[in-house]
Design a protein around this nucleic acid. Sequence first.
DNA 1: AACACCCCCGAAAAGGTTTTAGGATGTGCT
DNA 2: AGCACATCCTAAAACCTTTTCGGGGGTGTT
Lengths: 342, 342
Amino acid sequence: MTTEPEVPAYRPPTLTDVAKLAGVSVATASKAINGRGEVRSTTRVRVLEAAELLSFAPNALARGLLSGRTGTVGLLTSDLEGRFSIPILMGAEDASGAGQVSVFLCDARGDAIREKHHVQALLSRRVDGLIVVGSRTDPRPPLAGNIPVPVVYVYAPSADPADISITVDNVGGGRLAIEHLLACGRRTIAHITGEAGFQAARDRAEGAAAALAAAGLRMVGDRPYFGSWDESWGRAAAHMVVEQHPEVDAIFCGSDQIARGVLETLRDFGREVPRSISVIGFDNWEAIAADSRPRLTSIDMNLKHLGEVAGQRLFAAIDGAAPSSEEFPGRVVMRESTLPVG
Amino acid sequence: MTTEPEVPAYRPPTLTDVAKLAGVSVATASKAINGRGEVRSTTRVRVLEAAELLSFAPNALARGLLSGRTGTVGLLTSDLEGRFSIPILMGAEDASGAGQVSVFLCDARGDAIREKHHVQALLSRRVDGLIVVGSRTDPRPPLAGNIPVPVVYVYAPSADPADISITVDNVGGGRLAIEHLLACGRRTIAHITGEAGFQAARDRAEGAAAALAAAGLRMVGDRPYFGSWDESWGRAAAHMVVEQHPEVDAIFCGSDQIARGVLETLRDFGREVPRSISVIGFDNWEAIAADSRPRLTSIDMNLKHLGEVAGQRLFAAIDGAAPSSEEFPGRVVMRESTLPVG
DNA sequence: AACACCCCCGAAAAGGTTTTAGGATGTGCT
DNA sequence: AGCACATCCTAAAACCTTTTCGGGGGTGTT
């Protein structure tokens, strides 16, 4: 009871162990392992063999303490479901390339206190930079306090235009959707979307309206049907649209979930998709869009690419560059719900 | 060009800075801040004020280098969509309590090479422990190499029974589902589920069969309908079931996605849910289950709780305890698809 | 044989924190 | 006055790696 559990406590091998085994000094061992400095090739292999034998892995803490660089970046998300964060995380990791850099994800759960705490935790562990992922596209307040490392905001831009933000071009996305429907031969198009309080909903609607105007057309009902992002709203709104405007021949939905609801109601009404009416969604959420009946055409926001770019910009900023914000277009992922009429 | 960019390079304040400002030695400053050792109260407040003023945050690298503890655990996931990992991450974070410990997530994408790389990266950063999350419940090979820190496997158990694994009781989950349907007054129950290659599918089917046998009943068709985890299979299998066994009055689905497909086919056949037939899913995936028509009763695996327990077990192991594996039951989340007949 | 020179290696310092052991100061008692 | 002792603080070592600088030894040249 008086002393500790007395576990043998396997101690990870240190550079000193390697050097001792190889019969050289720690300085030489370090140089041999990192390929720096002048060291005879025979010595180098001797050190490398010793390191291999002990399965030595350098202590990143000591290294970071000395160099000021830890080769670590934090990815801070507020996206509960991880639907946006995971692809962005993957992209950021890919951008880190050969693997000198590790990306660690923390979930702030949309809670400012928790976010502050995670930022502190990451900074005290001396991350080289931060990626902040929002759960919606509305501008978000920049991280509080003066952050001593570069920060890149993804998906949700920072409210401070001086910050680096990598975002989706939702206006362009709305335009893409409409242009696709037009290319399929549709002319009488309605737009059912989520809450008007979301920038994403307003932007997509704006792009849709612009594309229609450019073709000399108007939206069915003259304005978007704002509601919520879920299936029930899709069902309810589709009901209204079909009853009030039976001539409608395409519906652009602000989310794939809305589109699922729309599909269901159209089926109830006996409106065949895509023969009689086309439907296009937004997000390209595989679990929702890829296995509906018919399978759903959707706008993909290329989140993984967004993450890649965010990673690249962050690494550039860490290396002293001053990158700027950027906005990326989505792309149409075509499935059966918008087969061209013909 | 000859020298570095010459940035002022905001240097984070060190303990030395604080000590200097407070007019004490670093040792005293350390003790004052950590509340350790004998230090006069007037001195303590002087130090704390100085720390506050400089917004000093201790360098976790230096601290970890010395103590051998970093207050960091790595959560390694193979779950592409993050559908399982995020709740588990949240649970593990909650288990870490006051916030001395941070949990960092890495995504191995089900790739052994990438997994190895991430383990190396985490270990070189001297995490105190690892949580490994699998994407399916089949036992997985334990982490390769001798890991010098405790490891807890969640969702997917380690193939080595000596390891600590925290898993879902899928047999019990299957039993729960059937018992719920029986309690709703159903007697003629079919089971449509995913690939027989998945332990989860086999376990749930086993539990279902056992619960039916205990009630003196048999499964419709005498065996589960194994197929795939998606909606199309749900539609196809429901078609078969309803045609071959029109007397069926309940369907237990191995996933919520399958259940969605089943619901759709039942609607095509004019079988009213839940009046004429009940449907129960598995996973309680909100996006799928919470907004279908009717809304879907489902088995929830309590993943967040799983993460909490995993965190607790890991922290216990880090503190020298020798915790054991554990299996947790799910729970029925009731919605409209299984309203009792009456 | 003496010298210049190159190649390789080792000693030491630095980075920020915690802990241990000991030193300085002041108080109470004989 | 001298001593024991409690209280508060400091100096220094330790953690592990990287880098700089200098030294030792060998080789080629005159």
